[in-house]
């Protein structure tokens, strides 16, 4: 970790609130250690803005370890910046050169309205999970954890899908602002496990319906989502979701009601 210092010019999208007009403003980040993270560079810019009595740049962030999914914005048109498989909090300044000019914009998608500057509202993702991204089991109902062996390959594949952090980079990178990668990762995670079979059809139908209701665009399989995903969630999940959805739509049975079959 040999420390070097660099200077950058930032063009940052500033927007006071959802209903206000936004614009790009220019800032200078000086004497930034190349060992600092991108967000630590923004911290330094904000400290200076506060000292001058200006409004600091708002951005979402929390764990700064690449796992909570809070951070994320476009850096020169790339979700989370130029490094592959990296959230913006894990992007370090050693990947930038002295004198670079960098443009920062929030995720652009009508289902993710801008809250302020680089912060957007991603609660649509919670509403998608709410509509079926779970296995209906109450606490205390479970059998022994080893009573149900699961082939390692299935468990590993389910795990890979389950590592999605819900940051929204997939939506922001997609030309259609589709949430297919996010939604399919959860459908796939639960659908690959034996515990998830009972509700598999209903889950696919409800989650896809909610995804559409939130106004996310359709998937046209260009794959930018997966390419920009900091957790490398695979495009195969979308294929799985489409298969589950199609199968469920074709075989959907009417709900049994009291008196049926009597």
């Amino acid at each position: 970790m040999s420390e070097n210092k660099i200077n950058l010019t930032l063009k940052v999208w500033r927007q006071k609130g959802q209903k206000d007009d936004g614009q790009f403003k220019e800032y200078h980040a000086n004497d930034i250690s190349t060992d600092a993270s991108f967000l630590e560079m923004l911290d330094a810019v904000n400290e200076e803005l506060i000292s001058k009595g200006d409004d600091p740049i708002a951005f979402d962030h929390d764990c700064r370890e690449g796992i909570c999914g809070s951070c994320g914005f476009m850096i020169d048109g790339n979700a989370h910046g130029p490094q592959k498989s990296t959230t913006v909090c894990q992007l370090h300044m050693r990947h930038f050169k002295n004198g670079d000019s960098v443009t920062l914009e929030p995720w652009r998608a009508s289902s993710f309205p801008v809250i302020k500057d680089l912060m957007v509202d991603r609660t649509a993702f919670d509403r998608i999970i709410r509509s079926g991204g779970y296995i209906s089991v109450n606490t205390g109902n479970a059998q022994d954890g080893n009573a149900l062996p699961i082939p390692k390959q299935d468990a590993d594949e389910a795990f890979n899908a389950a590592t999605c952090i819900g940051c929204g980079a997939c939506v922001a990178s997609c030309k259609n602002a589709s949430a297919a990668l996010f939604t399919s990762a959860k459908i796939s995670h639960l659908g690959l496990l034996p515990q998830g079979q009972v509700e598999k059809d209903k889950r696919a139908l409800r989650m896809v319906e909610q995804m559409d209701a939130e106004g996310f665009g359709a998937c046209t399989s260009t794959g930018t989502c997966s390419a920009s995903c900091p957790k490398d969630i695979s495009l195969i999940n979308i294929a799985k979701m489409n298969k589950d959805f199609l199968k469920a739509s074709l075989t959907k049975k009417p709900e049994a009601h009291a008196g049926d079959g009597v």
Binding site: I135, P151, K152, L190, Q195
Partner: peptide
């Protein structure tokens, strides 16, 4: 012990051995 059972039932993808056990 009940925590592990509950989490498995919820679909938490714990690491497994080739025999399928935790």
């Amino acid at each position: 012990t009940a925590i592990i059972d509950t989490c498995v039932a919820q679909g938490v993808p714990f690491a497994r051995e080739y025999g399928g056990l935790l």
